[in-house]
């Protein structure tokens, strides 16, 4: 790789720009057909602005991309354990800081990206993430959220939504899948007073790439929550992965927004729904076709769909209120 420098030039993220930029996440990895996270990673790496070190939690994306002696990473990359993506970033940042002072780092600046799935973020990695952002290390944490422990065979996580069937919350005769709602991880990160927190989905790729760039440009920790369907875990058609990342936004299951220095702002796709509420689709439009929700479409479990609709509406209303309050 050629010696890299931080780009100061504003990037437009046009399709041409993206096509011309060398891949950071190379083909040949072993992700499944229709994998949401693999698409996310490939695109995210197109938004880097110069020398970058990547660290990753144990999970699907780590496993599919680093099987020795092969690698999908054309950037320097470190994996240590499941719960350590943010702690790794702390160590890399601390080392770069002091080695730069001592004249042992050539590059003027090196960005750090930490990737983790929902398990490595909502659950086992939450403490390390909270600690690292509290300490103020300069890194971008990217959560690729496929709403379950897919790598180990589709178990529930703190990011799995209510009613979803997983192998540890199967839909049985008594229990309709997961009994608890998804943890509001973005709110938790906002509560850490970060300068930049955002949500994105790969369907709105330009929006997502701009958010990656913004997160990198922040001096200090930034958090980006990216919605990334898993066809295997969701029992959905691989060809429909991108469609679900659109439906999730249109149903307000996963609104896209930014929180810049505590100020909430809806991103265009969600903003349009706010301006024209009739465009908000019922949650069933998003749920149907996903095998993990199949059991909900029975009279016995209709109430779960109703609850999910109510919870989604409540969270959407709450979000709009925050936008209003922080305007």
């Amino acid at each position: 790789m050629e010696e890299q420098k931080v780009t100061t030039q504003e990037w437009k993220f046009t399709a041409k720009d993206i096509a011309l930029k060398p891949e950071g996440f190379l083909p040949g990895h072993r992700a499944c057909a229709g994998c949401g996270p693999a698409n996310v990673l490939r695109m995210v790496m197109k938004a880097t602005r110069g020398p970058t070190i990547v660290t990753e939690a144990t999970g699907c994306m780590e496993v599919v991309s680093s099987i020795y002696p092969y690698t999908s990473w054309s950037y320097p990359w470190l994996h240590t354990a499941f719960e350590t993506a943010a702690a790794n970033a702390s160590g890399i940042e601390a080392a770069l800081k002091v080695l730069t002072k001592k004249g042992k780092v050539k590059q003027e600046h090196i960005d750090i990206i930490a990737f983790a799935g929902d398990g490595g973020t909502y659950d086992i990695g939450l403490q390390a993430l909270s600690g690292a952002v509290e300490r103020g290390h300069d890194f971008l944490f990217i959560l690729y959220d496929n709403e379950g422990y897919m790598n180990t065979g589709i178990q529930r996580s703190g990011g799995t939504p209510l009613g979803a069937a997983t192998t540890t919350t199967p839909a049985g005769s008594v229990m309709p899948g997961k009994m608890q709602n998804k943890k509001p991880i973005t709110d938790i990160m906002v509560a850490h007073d970060l300068e930049y927190v955002a949500t994105a989905t790969p369907y709105y790729w330009k929006d997502m790439l701009q958010k990656v760039r913004k997160g990198l440009e922040v001096e200090g920790p930034a958090f980006l929550h990216i919605f990334a369907p898993c066809p295997r875990g969701w029992r959905s058609e691989p060809a429909k992965t991108m469609e679900y990342t659109k439906l999730a936004v249109e149903s307000c299951v996963f609104p896209v927004y930014e929180v810049v220095k505590g100020k909430y702002e809806l991103s265009t796709p969600s903003k349009l729904i706010q301006l024209a509420p009739q465009k908000k689709i019922p949650i069933t439009e998003y749920l149907k076709g996903q095998g993990r929700y199949r059991h909900l479409f029975t009279p016995q479990h209709q109430h779960v769909v109703d609850t999910l609709q109510r919870l989604t509406d409540e969270r959407w209303a709450k979000l709009q209120k925050k936008v209003e309050q922080t305007a």
């Binding site: 240590t80 350590t84 702690a87 790794n88 702390s90 080392a95 690292a132």
Partner: peptide
Amino acid sequence: ESEHSAMAACIASSAT
């Protein structure tokens, strides 16, 4: 915030 993260940070720092 924990020894677990301390060792992870040490590994990452040493790897850098």
